[in-house]
Design a protein around this nucleic acid. Structure first.
Length: 225
DNA sequence: AGTTGATCATGA
DNA sequence: TCATGATCAACT
């Protein structure tokens, strides 16, 4: 097996590449990519995702757009347990905390990222070393109306609070399926946000995440309960 | 500092 | 036990 040097030109080509990865362990794929596999992910939390980007020919260098923008597909690895349920929430995108007036769901980063996703489930059990963890069957998923309505409701609730200067009152408990959580290198990172009286204040950067309840349904729908 | 890739680890 | 809040690394 050989690593692609160019991005896939079509969804079919992407799916063909992805199918080749099913059943491989991260150790095997790491060897193909000539990359050292970490003993754990304590210090390289995004390793799996970056390995899959390499293996599928996603453009290196992270941009605020879909991984395969030319074909409108976002790549997401998702750690699962033996029963196929997600072990972690799924990061979607960074949240802008100023100039939120005029941002609508239809053109939001959340919707753009989640419109079409190539999900790559990977054994994420922490009692198994990364090199032994197996890549399951990748599959293409499109955001459906019912799911979109649910996410939109959460997103609008959160965005309303941001717009109202309520950022400090938003916790990860808000949102049924989509939540807002800190997203930064450490606790000292600060970014601009809208304050209580409409002024600019400093706060911890945040990101949108999908709760496990949401991704669990996606996985169950595809693999069957 | 912003944004990508995420998982870690502690409190409840 | 598990979700929230925190954190790690690479690159722009």
């Amino acid at each position: 097996m050989k690593l692609p040097s160019v991005p896939p030109c079509s969804i079919d080509e992407l799916l063909q590449r992805a199918e080749q990865l099913a059943g491989l362990t991260l150790g095997e794929l790491g060897q193909i990519a000539n990359i050292r596999v970490p003993k754990d992910f304590k210090r390289e939390k995004g390793w799996s995702g970056q390995l899959l980007e390499l293996a599928l020919g996603a453009q290196a260098g992270s941009k605020a757009q879909q991984d395969f923008a030319n074909i409108g597909v976002e790549l997401k690895t998702i750690p699962i347990d033996l029963t196929g349920k997600p072990l972690e929430t799924t990061y979607v995108c960074y949240a802008h905390l100023t100039d939120v007036a005029g941002i609508h769901w239809a053109t939001s980063s959340v919707r753009n990222k989640l419109n079409k996703v190539l999900w790559v489930p990977i054994d994420g059990r922490r009692d198994i070393s990364p090199s032994e963890r197996c890549i399951a069957t990748p599959f293409l998923w499109s955001l459906q109306a019912e799911q979109e309505a649910a996410l939109r409701q959460d997103w609008e609730e959160i965005m309303d609070m941001i717009a109202m200067g309520d950022i400090e009152n938003i916790t990860a408990r808000h949102g049924e399926y989509l939540q807002l959580r800190p997203k930064a290198a450490n606790g000292s990172a600060l970014t601009d946000a809208i304050g209580r009286n409409g002024q600019i204040v400093q706060t911890r950067p945040r990101g949108f995440y999908l709760r496990k309840e949401f991704t669990s349904k996606i996985l169950a729908d595809y693999f069957g309960e």
